[in-house]
Amino acid sequence: MSHIVLAIGTAAITASGCVWYLPAIADLQAGEDRPRSSRTAAAACVTWWAFLAMAGGLLLAVPAWQPAVEIALAGLVAGVLLRVRALLQRRAEQREEAVRWALIDPGLAPLLARPSPRVLLGWLLVGLAVASLGAASILLAGGGPLAPRLAAAVGSAVAVSTAFLLIGLGDARHRQRA
């Protein structure tokens, strides 16, 4: 497949992702009006999309596809790390809020919700299936020694599984609140 086709596809995906990164940019611009966890999650979202856009630009500028993949994976890893940090900050904010409510009236302390195991298990199974298919396609693609393909397959499988785990945690908490 031509690099131009991949770059156009990446540009189309990045453009359609505006439904996620434009509200995230608004959260970042709001500054202290938003909780720290929301701003960190918004930074993760903007990081993912910005690195994907850079990867698309690299597909146009560089004849090899490896730099674009490396940039996209770097963005994925940075975004996942920021998202994990946002989850930890959110937990700390919930604990602080529970303490504040307990100071007002001990009977009003809100319970911290735990994610639904069935919803989380569904996301994990889908993530493992997608990660397995991606790893298998990398291994079966051929072209070069086995060791780099194996490392790429394992790395992509871990990244995809982690992404689905984070999405599943968010979805399970969202469903429980609704």
Score class of each variant (00 low, 15 high):
H3T: 14
I8Q: 12
A12H: 12
A12R: 14
I13M: 11
T14R: 11
G17S: 13
V19N: 08
W20Y: 12
L22H: 07
L22K: 05
I25P: 10
D27E: 15
A30P: 03
G31I: 05
G31N: 06
G31E: 05
D33N: 15
R34C: 04
P35K: 02
P35L: 00
S37V: 09
S38L: 15
T40Y: 12
A43N: 08
C45G: 12
C45Y: 09
V46A: 10
W49Y: 13
W49S: 08
A53S: 10
V62Y: 10
P63K: 04
Q66M: 06
I71T: 02
A74N: 03
G75N: 02
L76Y: 02
V77D: 00
A78R: 01
A78D: 03
G79M: 00
V80Q: 08
R90W: 07
R91V: 01
A92L: 10
A98F: 03
W101F: 12
L103D: 14
I104P: 02
I104W: 09
I104F: 14
A109W: 06
A113I: 11
R114A: 15
S116W: 08
R118V: 14
V119H: 05
G122L: 14
G122A: 15
W123I: 02
L124P: 04
L124Q: 11
L124S: 13
G127K: 01
L128P: 06
A129D: 04
A129E: 00
G144R: 02
P148L: 04
A151G: 11
A152Q: 12
A157W: 01
A157C: 08
A159E: 00
S161P: 08
A163D: 11
A172N: 04
R175K: 07
R175A: 11
